[in-house]
Structure formats: structure tokens, C-alpha cells
Design a binder for these strands. Structure first.
Lengths: 156, 156
DNA sequence: CTAGATCCTCAAGTAACTTGAGGAGCAACT
DNA sequence: AGTTGCTCCTCAAGTTACTTGAGGATCTAG
């Protein structure tokens, strides 16, 4: 068996969460209380997976309450399957919406950087053609996605 | 001239920020103090653009401090153009990184929903094949992006 | 066996808002 | 002219999701 036990610092490294954040998650009941050896917390591979998943969801802007829901999707075995699918579907909708917005910002920024590199661009920003382009792209972004409902279903 | 003056509620609608949030942004100096008529704030098209841009950046997970920096990108004309480009480039890196992670999550979720719809799925989650698929996809997601540096440059 | 890194708990601080109290102003129907 | 209802104002307190700090114990390497 290769299941080594990890102290909290190693878990933090592997999951990209900070040590105090992990303790905080335990405190609020998002992750189960860790096993202890001489008062110190010990973790396994399952904990690395769970925490990585949690950190990822947080990066995407889901609230801790929603993350709790998502974690329970694949850990809790006594829920109605259709209900679980509906939750996942709704999360998927949000994720797709975020992706279109991120794509629009990516386009704005890359256009800006490209034109800033290609045009003669030695002076201050007021002389720089690319700056005007940038503020123009933001207007375009707005036109592209006019009815951004602010995902109130998910973060309210 | 078609420049109508907007009360704070209309600005909130158009920019997708809440009314208290706009007042808060004024208070912390992120947006300039609005003109007033009978004590009430009045705004124009420029304010709609600025606030929409700010809201969008916040949705993408940039801190208010970073947003301040980005707002000054196209409003402040006395900065070195190369410096401005470097800031934009760094933002672009973060945005691209977020996009690959979002894409991975999108894949996980859509696979889950699809298989949940196709297989016989009438009981509880412990009976459902799709749940096992989902937790498997999360492991895949982890393998796809192992060195997530947590964007410390941007949100520290 | 000691020096430094890592761990522990508990309390307080921070960012970015949100909510609530208490009150004034404007629009528009009657 | 009155009053009903919506929007606005300020100021203070609450919320979420952490982070930082104090004060102390414990493990690990040289």
C-alpha cells in the first residue's frame, strides 16, 4: 500500500489551499474532522481530491454553500438522482455563462496587447492608439452580452 | 444631444451593480463623486461604461485594487505605455489560466448530466452509475492542470 | 540536545459587500 | 391638495470567506 499520511502542510501544498483555510473548512463543517496523531491532523489521498475540488469551485466563484452542495453530489449516496442531475445541470449553465464572458475578456485583452506591441508605442498612454482600442473593446463586450442576469440563482 | 441624466437606480440596472454597491464604490474612491441634483446622484453614459467594466472585472475575480489599476489603464493618460501593456498581459495570463480550468469543469459537468440522462437512473445516487463517472472526471481535471500556481501575483 | 520548521488553539482583523433603521422627495392618481 | 408608493438619502451594523497574530507545544536535522 502506498497510502502515506499527510500533515496539514502537505495537504495545503497539494490542494493549493492555505493551512488556515483548511482548518477553517473543518471548523465550519465543509470537510470532516481529520484524524489526529499527537494532536496533529493527518490526511489521505481522498482529502487531497476533495480539497482540490473545493478550491477549484471557489476559484470559479461559487459560494461555500454551493460548494457544499457540489461536494455532496458525489459523496452522499442517499439523494434522489434526478435532483442531483438538476443541480449539476444548473451549475453547468452558470459555468457556460462564465466561459462566454471570460472569452470576451480574453479577446479584449489579447487584442490590446497585440496592437500595443505592433504599433509604435513609445510615449505615454494618451499618445497610444492601442488604449483607445481597449476602451472600444469593452464597449463591444457589453454589446455581446447585454442581459447578464448576474447569476442570482447561484450567489444570492 | 441625447445625453440623458440617469438616477442611481437606472445606472444600477444598466451596469448590473446594486445601488448600495455604487454608493460603496463612490465612498472608497473607486468611482468619482457623482454630480447631485436636490441631493440625488446623477450619472451619464461614461459612468455606465466605467461601472459595467468594473462589474465585469469583479465577476472575473480581480480584487478591487486590481480593478482600480485596470480602470486607470484607459482613463489616466500619463503613464508609460509599456507598463500598461505589461499589466494587461499579466491579466491576460490569469484569464487564460481560468479558462482552461473552467473548460475542465464544463467537461466534467456536461459528461455527468449527459450520462445521467442516458442511463437508467431512477433510484438514489448510490445506485447511479453517473455519480461514479463524475468523481472520476474530477480526478481527470486534477491530472490536466497539476501546477495551479493560485494566481498569487494578482490576488495577494 | 538545541535550532528551526511545523503544528496547535483562540481571538481579532480584513475585503467587499449587504441589510436595516429612519427619514425625505418626487410622480401620479383622486 | 392630499396621499399612496416608489426611489432616494445617510449612517451603522451584519455577513462571507478568509487572513493574521499571539502564545505555546512538538517534531526533525545537524
Amino acid at each position: 500500500m502506498k497510502s502515506a499520511f499527510l500533515p496539514i502542510g502537505a495537504l495545503a501544498d497539494q490542494s493549493q489551499c492555505s493551512v488556515p483555510t483548511i482548518r477553517y473548512y473543518e471548523q465550519i463543517g465543509l470537510i470532516p474532522p481529520a484524524a489526529r496523531s499527537a494532536g496533529r491532523r493527518l490526511y489521505g489521498e481522498e482529502d487531497v481530491r476533495r480539497l482540490t475540488f473545493i478550491r477549484r469551485c471557489r476559484d470559479f466563484g461559487f459560494s461555500l454553500e454551493r460548494v457544499k452542495e457540489m461536494v455532496s453530489l458525489y459523496e452522499n449516496g442517499d439523494r434522489d438522482c434526478a435532483e442531483v442531475r438538476d443541480i449539476a445541470q444548473a451549475h453547468l449553465d452558470v459555468v457556460r455563462h462564465r466561459m462566454t464572458e471570460l472569452l470576451a475578456l480574453e479577446k479584449s485583452l489579447s487584442q490590446f496587447v497585440t496592437s500595443c506591441n505592433s504599433v509604435s508605442c513609445q510615449g505615454t498612454t494618451s499618445d497610444c492608439v492601442a488604449i483607445e482600442d481597449l476602451s472600444q473593446s469593452f464597449k463591444e463586450v457589453r454589446r455581446m452580452a447585454p442581459a447578464t442576469s448576474k447569476d442570482e440563482t447561484w450567489n444570492s
